[in-house]
Design a protein around this nucleic acid. Structure first.
Lengths: 231, 231
DNA sequence: CTTCCCTGTAACATATTTGTCATATTATTG
DNA sequence: CAATAATATGACAAATATGTTACAGGGAAG
């Protein structure tokens, strides 16, 4: 299982910080807080959080300015940043993207949405070592022992299904076409019918059982996707 | 950051061209000029400017005619166009084929105004990375995971509606004719009734729900447009 | 050589999407 | 306000895409 992730919340309004902190802690994250960009900067260098939630508008140094600084320092350049913006002003977004923001959320937002986005960014950014155990909602895949299990019980997967699952679990929230899957999972130089993918998807789904089927999602007209979020 | 943008000024009056060129160069743009639509067309294909400032009334080929040609060629379809119209052409603005024109400026205009409008158009047209998440007023489309959501809840879109929405969200504030939409969203070589577009617009609107319907706007006599601004 | 497990395909079953039409609605024009 | 043109909408059948199952052949293990 992944470490507990530490999230730094930067916002000048205490009420908002608390609200976010509660939501995140309920979702199993650890939170630290800062009420201005300068404090935040010091804290980041000190505590190296796994992610920074950053309010756009703040006294002294703006969120965007802090983001730039973090990006320009190699020590902090890899820490993902999610921006909290009051209104979704086009300009802000453009500048935000330039400054290397990973995502932004427009206030007001629901705790559910916040947590979902946060997880999504973390998943995207956290580099999975090729031999790293991946676990998602009780579904666990261990590349070293070459085993997959659901709620602790081993799953019975064929070799292809195993590779498919491994690929999916290390490339979540991303839609792949059948052709892409054939390239990535089967290998570039095999000639196999596209529809064959469907069959293996079916076998994988069956093996995952009701508990985890939903993770393998059909993207109609496109292909398939692995995601914890509802379609 | 951004490259220096190159603007093509098309007007038969040298004095006006010069005036505009000076204003734009002071604002940090690079200018090229043409005194008639034919020369302009060649120049556009050759130099691929980032934007075309086009006089409505010109000898030989009119501005509107040139605009039409640019729009119908995939190579030039994305180059933004700002029309320069004399006051008494005002009607044209309303009646005329406004599909594909990004903005109008009525002569006489102040350099300040021109530059402001131009920047505004460039800002919204500037190609967002093809895989970039687009979000507008809580409506969000993520090309990577191939998902659209409204206020955090997933939207149920058919493939065509998805493509339509993606096209609109990356080409905002610009009216498209049904034919253009068929070309851009359906693909150039399909024969489909123009009216079919209406039906898919309808489906898209329905899927967007009350919260976001207003973004898909009918431009009577012309086609449709995606914009946050009220009609 | 046999047995057993995997695979890829084909065939059939379902589910969704799509393009059109006919019919309302709504805007425009005189 | 009536006449007319342009859109909106709902329904449907045809076309597509995906789900599912069965099966034959390949290959590894014994």
């Amino acid at each position: 299982m992944g470490q507990v992730k530490q999230i730094l919340i930067v916002d000048d309004e205490t009420a908002i910080r608390e609200m976010i902190a509660v939501a995140l802690e309920m979702a199993g994250f650890e939170c630290i807080e800062a009420d201005n960009a300068l404090t935040a900067h010091a804290l980041i260098i000190d505590a190296k959080p796994d992610m920074v939630l950053l309010d756009w508008m703040m006294p002294k140094m703006s969120g965007i300015e802090l983001a730039r600084r973090l990006r320009s320092d190699a020590l902090t350049a890899d820490i993902p940043i999610i921006m909290l913006t009051a209104r979704d002003d086009e300009d802000h977004k453009i500048h935000g993207l330039e400054a290397g923001i990973d995502d932004y959320i427009t206030k007001p937002f629901s705790p559910r949405e916040l947590v979902a986005r946060l997880k999504s960014v973390l998943r995207r950014v956290t580099p999975k070592g090729i031999d790293q155990v991946v676990e998602v909602e009780g579904l666990r895949l261990d590349p070293v022992s070459h085993r997959a299990s659901s709620q602790g019980t081993a799953l019975d997967l064929g070799p292809t299904e195993y590779r498919l699952l491994q690929f999916f679990m290390s490339h979540q929230d991303r839609a792949y076409s059948r052709t892409q899957l054939l390239d990535m999972v089967w290998g570039g130089n095999v000639y196999v019918e596209e529809r064959t993918v469907d069959v293996h998807i079916r076998r994988l789904r069956k093996a995952l059982g009701d508990r985890h089927q939903y993770l393998i999602q059909t993207v109609r007209g496109t292909g398939y996707r692995f995601s914890t979020q509802t379609q």
